[in-house]
Design a protein around this nucleic acid. Structure first.
Lengths: 213, 213
DNA sequence: GACTTCGGGTGACTTTTGTCACCCAGTTTT
DNA sequence: AAAACTGGGTGACAAAAGTCACCCGAAGTC
């Protein structure tokens, strides 16, 4: 294995893949770059590849009919987009939207390869299963949030998750951004944040929020 | 192939399976019966098998921490429980609850078999992928419903879905049952149903609701 | 320095949803 | 037949969330 950018990504981010699978992938995948803010996939778009994230960070949204965007979860380097697998396999269009929030790099695995990979490489099969499992769990948690919790709890949970994902307690989020991720309105979020500040859970600044504890 | 109950189920409900796979399944699965109202799986329970529904009808719920049950979707004969596949594969516990609403029969495919089936029988592999895809879509629709719609729209949608599933316009549902499926309260549902009746969309009776059009 | 934009704060009000209390009419039990 | 239970209706009220109007100050632009 020589040391191209692609082989580096695959060898460092997917060490669990058996060597033959890594070689195969290095030969077959194509690489693609996105700038922060760019959309990776639009509602209604068809996939011709399964997507592996290798650099940056991608936010996945569900789009409502009225143009609302409801935040679901993040994808990180080393993770795959479960929907791209599913939709690619069935040639169906996606009903979700992905946005790079940092400059990001992805590898595209042609769908024509999927069946072979699944049959020939157990570690790929396990990776796919684990991807499904993880995303399924994530969706169930999203459902929990909106089905059982009030906006205040969802907000709290949202901030925690952001902090974990971005690995910092200084969240560079405007109230407006939070509001649209949670499909609410700025004023409501502002008020709830104020309450959280009074309870000492966070500290508010212009353009960022500091999480306590 | 002789004609046991199991072989009948498999041959009639899964005709897309290649003959060798059907033979294999007929040898390996075990059969289980549930009476209407019984729980198939409880929150926290571990799966040792993947579940195929062959008779009856199963309702799947997500359970909240406070004991609430949030209805997600139905499983019908010929369908598999996606979560049982995922959880079985990873030996994880389920966080959902399944309830038979009719007397139901299921086939249990031991998890030990899963890897082999996936590798040896393309039609099994496609079946599993299709199951994931369908359930994923269904979860996304559930999210749409609670994220973007008011209770009135959700109720409307819920009634439509019930009618489709149960293949009748006479829905034998009490207001209380609807309320708990939607994680709301009886009074609210009663009021919304009244409004729908005034708009001529439904007709209300004791113990059942008649869908118009 | 004046102006504009952006992020945020706030009070007043509305809508939606949940809750409480109580009622009523069938149906079932005793 | 009386009592109890079930499914449903209703008014009054409370809480949560969304909306509107407007304000303010910080930062960027001209």
């Amino acid at each position: 294995m020589n040391s191209t950018p692609i082989s580096n990504y695959i060898n460092t981010l997917f060490p669990q893949f058996e060597p033959a699978l890594r070689t195969k992938l290095i030969e077959e995948v194509t690489i693609k770059h996105f700038k922060a803010g760019e959309h990776l996939m639009q509602t209604g778009q068809y996939f011709r590849s399964t997507v592996l994230i290798v650099e940056g960070r991608v936010k996945l949204y569900r789009e409502g009919t009225d143009g609302n965007e409801f935040f679901m979860y993040y994808l990180q380097p080393g993770e795959a987009c479960a929907l791209s697998m599913i939709c690619a396999a069935k040639q169906e269009s996606s009903k979700i939207m992905g946005k790079a929030i940092e400059d990001s790099t992805i590898l595209m695995v042609p769908i024509a390869l999927m069946d072979d990979l699944m049959k020939q490489y157990p570690s790929w099969y396990y990776f796919v299963m684990e991807t499904y499992r993880a995303r399924f769990e994530e969706l169930l948690q999203v459902i929990d949030g909106i089905a059982f919790n009030g906006l205040d709890e969802r907000l709290s949970f949202y901030l925690q998750k952001q902090a974990e994902q971005l690995e910092t307690n200084q969240l560079n989020l405007t109230h407006q951004e939070i509001a649209s991720d949670l499909n609410s309105s700025r004023e409501v979020i502002s008020r709830l944040l104020k309450k959280m500040e009074q309870k000492g859970e966070i500290k508010l600044f212009r353009n960022y929020i500091e999480l306590k504890k």
